[in-house]
């Protein structure tokens, strides 16, 4: 477990010093089936792999689209979003970096950006110079967190989400799924803004997504 202690990505994953492409192809890197399928789509335009991704993520994406009733929502949004997101997934799969994020996280970020942009296009007659996607161009870099750390934090998020107190779970869902700002969540729940913020922070601390307040600079 010595590799856990080091900050260096290279030491955490000695293979990275060698052939980077070979590392990406290696099955022990990220072995969940969705990430494997997404890699196949990116590398070989694998339509069968894409179809499997579609069958799994399509209905989830539609559920995600219907969770938000923000301004601009319309009944056909769900299937429109599924189409737009999945075509983006196909087109952008070559740029998917399995070292940086799992396929689920990667597809979530595509879906989140698409949902915001679709709602804005419907509700706003003005020309918007920037799409949400434009905020998410990260510099090309070595992964900011080692894959091992990522997997541990994914597991932690997954296992602790189910154990959150109801009032914390409720607010997280409002923010992430319904797309409500903290201020909107506070108005809807009839809670002071400070209470909303602290419930969110408590939930994130339990999932070890953020560390306690003294880490704030």
């Amino acid at each position: 477990m010595g590799m856990l202690k080091t900050e260096s990505k290279n030491l955490a994953n000695p293979r990275i010093n060698g052939d980077r492409v070979a590392v990406l192809k290696s099955t022990e890197k990220r072995s969940d089936q969705w990430s494997q399928l997404l890699i196949s789509v990116g590398e070989t335009h694998d339509r069968q792999a894409f179809a499997k991704l579609f069958q799994h993520f399509g209905p989830l994406l539609k559920g995600f689209a219907h969770a938000s009733r923000n301004e601009g929502w319309f009944p056909g949004l769900g299937d429109d979003l599924v189409q737009e997101v999945m075509i983006k997934v196909w087109n952008k799969a070559a740029g998917y970096n399995a070292e940086k994020a799992s396929a689920t996280t990667w597809i979530y970020t595509v879906a989140r950006n698409c949902r915001i942009d679709m709602l804005r296009r419907k509700s706003n007659t003005q020309h918007l110079p920037l799409e949400n996607e434009d905020f998410w161009h990260e510099p090309d870099e070595e992964t900011p967190i080692s894959l091992l750390q990522q997997k541990r934090s994914e597991d932690k998020v997954q296992s602790s989400l189910a154990q959150l107190p109801k009032e914390q779970d409720e607010i997280l869902r409002k923010v992430y799924l319904e797309g409500k700002s903290h201020a909107e969540a506070s108005a809807e729940l009839g809670l002071p803004l400070g209470t909303v913020k602290s419930r969110v922070r408590l939930a994130l601390q339990k999932m070890q997504v953020i560390v306690s307040t003294e880490a704030q600079e």
């Binding site: 989830l60 994406l61 559920g63 995600f64 940086k100 994020a101 799992s102 689920t104 996280t105 597809i107 979530y108 970020t109 879906a111 989140r112 900011p144 967190i145 990522q150 934090s153 994914e154 998020v157 997954q158 989400l161 997280l172 869902r173 992430y176 799924l177 994130l204 999932m207 997504v209 953020i210």
Partner: peptide, 12 residues
């Protein structure tokens, strides 16, 4: 990235 993992877990 960790915050995105929360969102992706909720979505899934």
């Amino acid at each position: 990235l960790r915050l995105d993992q929360v969102g992706s877990q909720l979505m899934s």
